[in-house]
């Protein structure tokens, strides 16, 4: 078999495998509904295990599935709808939202820095971890500004999303939060797009607040990066 046909067949295989695993995980989650059956977590671990057992490289895998990642762009555009639906509520509570985003961004960058220092991680790894709670394009811009490794940052961002979408549910169970703003914002602030998608399953208000917080937190971190950069180097 020519090498080209071979690689195309693998690409089709990975696309199909990912979609099938995702479909099964959706059904399982509907049945069981626990935080550890989250489709993102299950699909991620199952695909990773499959890729390992077949000795696949990232290049082979992404060739067939890159179109899925590309759809994140139009999905971000789609967030205009839930945000527009909740415009009155957002207009009423904009100050609380702004306080939450400033506090959240400070906590996110501060906690990454302190934890990475305590665990004695290398400076480049520590800088790459700083922007992990904002969505990928913002995080990469931040990482470049402060002198991290953008590639590593992208990986950490996605792992944060996977872990955060699951952890958020745990936090909801432990904290008695009365306002839907607090419930939504914790997902948007802590786990960017993945958390926001999860927040939509909690409720419509939570979902749109999470979407707005995600975008604003991303913008805030890109604005903060040039100010932080000289202090961190």
């Amino acid at each position: 078999m020519p090498a080209e046909v071979h690689s195309i067949l693998w690409a089709v295989f990975w696309a199909m495998a990912t979609l099938v695993i995702y479909g099964i995980s959706l059904l399982t989650h509907r049945r069981l509904g626990r935080w550890w059956t989250s489709p993102l977590l299950v699909t991620w671990l199952a695909c990773l295990a499959l890729a390992f057992s077949l000795h696949a490289t990232y290049g082979e895998y992404i060739k067939g599935t890159h179109w899925l990642v590309t759809l994140l762009g139009p999905a971000t555009v789609a967030f205009a709808m839930p945000i527009y639906e909740q415009r009155d509520m957002i207009r009423r509570h904009w100050l609380i939202l702004a306080i939450g985003i400033v506090a959240g961004t400070t906590i996110a960058i501060g906690s990454s820095w302190v934890l990475a220092s305590v665990l004695n991680l290398s400076p480049s790894l520590r800088l790459s971890l700083l922007p992990r709670s904002v969505s990928t394009p913002f995080a990469i811009a931040f990482s470049q500004d402060v002198g991290g490794i953008p590639e590593l940052t992208a990986t950490c961002v996605v792992i944060t999303g996977v872990v955060g979408a699951a952890l958020g549910e745990l936090v909801l169970k432990l904290l008695p939060l009365r306002s839907s703003f607090a419930r939504g914002a914790l997902f948007g602030m802590g786990a960017h797009g993945a958390g926001t998608a999860r927040a939509r399953q909690v409720g419509a208000e939570e979902g749109s607040v999470a979407g707005l917080v995600m975008v604003l937190a991303g913008l805030a971190s890109v604005l903060v990066a040039p100010i932080l950069a000289p202090c961190l180097r």
């Binding site: 489709p39 993102l40 899925l68 999303g161 797009g193």
Partner: peptide, 13 residues
């Protein structure tokens, strides 16, 4: 949207 994140996580490989 959650599905769209999965391929990017495979960079771990």
């Amino acid at each position: 949207m959650l599905l769209f994140f999965v391929p990017a996580t495979m960079a771990l490989l």
